[in-house]
């Protein structure tokens, strides 16, 4: 706002990367240590991927999802089979991006989309664990954890979505002025961010 940055794909990539990195660090060093009831924590990275995909479409969504998932697979305390989060976040990023193209811009739809994406991601991650025979993802654990985690995801989603929209807003504005084919997502995005700002 004070100094409008150059509207460039590089700028957008940088912003996306920063959003993912910051979310991931917040996830492992803050969110995962919160003593919430039930001992389950919201998945902020998943929410950020969903929000990015809704803003920027399926291509950005899936690439960002894949890279965020890969980072979540190798960030220090991670101890699961490498590639599980990459697979899940990539798929969710693609699906949410594809859904955003047809999405109605009514006031609550984006938030429902985020909640749906978070639910799908959580369930899918648990499913990959069960397919691989991970002893941590037994049915008894999954059935008690997943509903609670979905609830926390939904509760945390407005804040994450708002923050992501806030950060990406400047770049989308700059691109809109160029009047290229990105005008449509930018308009959609502006509609969303306007609402997000009123939260």
């Amino acid at each position: 706002m004070l100094n409008p940055p150059e509207a460039s794909p590089a700028g957008r990539i940088a912003v996306t990367a920063v959003v993912i990195a910051v979310t991931l660090i917040l996830q492992v060093s803050v969110a995962n240590r919160l003593p919430l009831p039930g001992g389950v924590q919201p998945d902020l990275v998943l929410l950020a991927v969903v929000a990015l995909a809704l803003v920027a479409g399926s291509m950005t969504g899936m690439v960002a999802g894949f890279l965020a998932g890969l980072a979540a697979d190798i960030v220090p305390p991670a101890d699961h089979t490498l590639g599980r989060y990459a697979l899940v976040y990539c798929l969710i990023g693609f699906l949410c991006g594809a859904a955003s193209a047809e999405m109605d811009r009514q006031s609550v739809v984006p938030f429902f989309a985020v909640a749906a994406g978070a639910t799908a991601g959580t369930v899918l991650y648990a499913a990959t664990g069960m397919i691989l025979g991970d002893p941590r993802a037994e049915w008894a654990t999954v059935s008690s954890m997943v509903p609670l985690q979905v609830l926390y995801d939904v509760l945390a989603s407005p804040f994450v979505v708002w923050a992501v929209l806030r950060v990406t807003r400047r770049y989308e504005r700059g691109e809109r002025s160029r009047g290229d084919r990105l005008a449509v997502p930018a308009a959609r995005y502006r509609a969303m961010s306007g609402r997000g700002g009123n939260l």
Partner: peptide
């Protein structure tokens, strides 16, 4: 300094 995500207690 940080804790694991998902189902793992790390």
């Amino acid at each position: 300094i940080s804790a694991g995500q998902g189902f793992e207690d790390t």
